[in-house]
Simulated assay, not measured.
Amino acid sequence: MRGGARLAALYAVFALIATAVNIGCQAVVIWAYHGPYAVPLSILVGTGAGLPVKYLLEKRHIFGFESEGLAHDGKLFVLYSVMGVVTTAVFWGVEFAFSHLYGTDAMRYVGGALGLTIGNLIKYQLDKRYVFVAPAAPLAEAA
């Protein structure tokens, strides 16, 4: 498999893994809790579980990025998370739309998977351009 195809396949596999973690956690919350705000709570828990999984897999295997330590890694995760705010809004919007239009958990999960797919395509471009980039070389001092 060529470089670009291999990268796309890995990214897809990692997105599927994170999606499975996300949707699985949502299903557990819905199974365990039937009270008010069960759906938003399940989406929040799913997102909170899937995000670090995706970050760790992508940082290492997609971008081949090594942080400079725990503090740097924390800053990267925050930046990675901030980049995900817009893409999470896309994901949530599609999931809530499916929930509203179809009114079933199964279709809400389909909407969640579709929203995550769209969000992942956008997220890759943002991360490549703004998160997992080599630090700029210091300017040479003037002589």
Score class of each variant (00 low, 15 high):
residue 102 Y to C: 13
residue 61 H to Y: 15
residue 22 N to P: 01
residue 138 P to N: 09
residue 130 Y to P: 00
residue 66 E to W: 05
residue 111 G to D: 05
residue 95 E to L: 15
residue 7 L to T: 14
residue 35 G to N: 01
residue 8 A to C: 06
residue 135 P to R: 13
residue 47 T to S: 03
residue 45 V to S: 07
residue 100 H to I: 09
residue 17 I to G: 09
residue 67 S to K: 03
residue 52 P to V: 00
residue 64 G to N: 13
residue 7 L to S: 13
residue 115 G to Q: 03
residue 90 V to C: 14
residue 60 R to G: 13
residue 100 H to G: 09
residue 88 T to V: 10
residue 133 V to D: 08
residue 31 W to Y: 13
residue 58 E to T: 05
residue 37 Y to V: 11
residue 97 A to N: 04
residue 7 L to H: 12
residue 135 P to T: 07
residue 81 S to L: 12
residue 2 R to L: 11
residue 11 Y to R: 02
residue 12 A to Y: 03
residue 3 G to K: 11
residue 115 G to E: 01
residue 105 D to K: 03
residue 88 T to H: 03
residue 82 V to I: 15
residue 61 H to M: 11
residue 10 L to G: 05
residue 78 V to Q: 00
residue 143 A to V: 11
residue 5 A to H: 10
residue 73 D to W: 02
residue 121 L to H: 08
residue 31 W to S: 13
residue 114 L to W: 03
residue 69 G to Y: 09
residue 13 V to G: 07
residue 82 V to P: 02
residue 109 Y to K: 04
residue 91 F to C: 04
residue 89 A to R: 05
residue 131 V to G: 00
residue 126 L to D: 06
residue 109 Y to R: 02
residue 121 L to F: 12
residue 108 R to K: 15
residue 86 V to H: 08
residue 39 V to I: 15
residue 132 F to P: 02
residue 106 A to C: 06
residue 57 L to V: 04
residue 139 L to Q: 14
residue 139 L to R: 14
residue 96 F to A: 04
residue 135 P to F: 09
residue 1 M to Y: 12
residue 70 L to F: 11
residue 13 V to P: 06
residue 91 F to G: 00
residue 76 L to H: 07
residue 86 V to W: 11
residue 11 Y to V: 00
residue 128 K to H: 14
residue 142 A to H: 10
residue 41 L to V: 13
residue 109 Y to C: 04
residue 66 E to I: 08
residue 62 I to P: 04
residue 79 L to V: 12
residue 139 L to H: 12
residue 84 G to N: 10
residue 48 G to P: 07
residue 47 T to W: 01
residue 16 L to K: 00
residue 20 A to Y: 07
residue 4 G to M: 11
residue 106 A to V: 13
residue 102 Y to D: 08
residue 138 P to C: 11
residue 92 W to L: 14
residue 129 R to H: 11
residue 113 A to R: 01
residue 85 V to Q: 02
residue 38 A to K: 10
residue 45 V to A: 15
residue 47 T to N: 05
residue 111 G to M: 06
residue 116 L to H: 08
residue 2 R to S: 14
residue 25 C to D: 01
residue 32 A to D: 08
residue 17 I to C: 13
residue 34 H to V: 02
residue 101 L to C: 13
residue 81 S to H: 07
residue 129 R to D: 03
residue 96 F to D: 00
residue 42 S to D: 03
residue 71 A to E: 14
residue 20 A to V: 12
residue 97 A to W: 11
residue 127 D to R: 01
residue 48 G to L: 15
residue 38 A to E: 09
residue 142 A to I: 10
residue 67 S to D: 10
residue 134 A to V: 09
residue 143 A to D: 13
residue 4 G to H: 09
residue 47 T to Y: 00
residue 53 V to P: 01
residue 109 Y to M: 11
residue 50 G to W: 00
residue 118 I to Q: 00
residue 21 V to A: 14
residue 24 G to P: 07
residue 136 A to N: 06
residue 26 Q to S: 12
residue 124 Y to M: 05
residue 66 E to V: 10
residue 70 L to V: 15
residue 51 L to E: 00
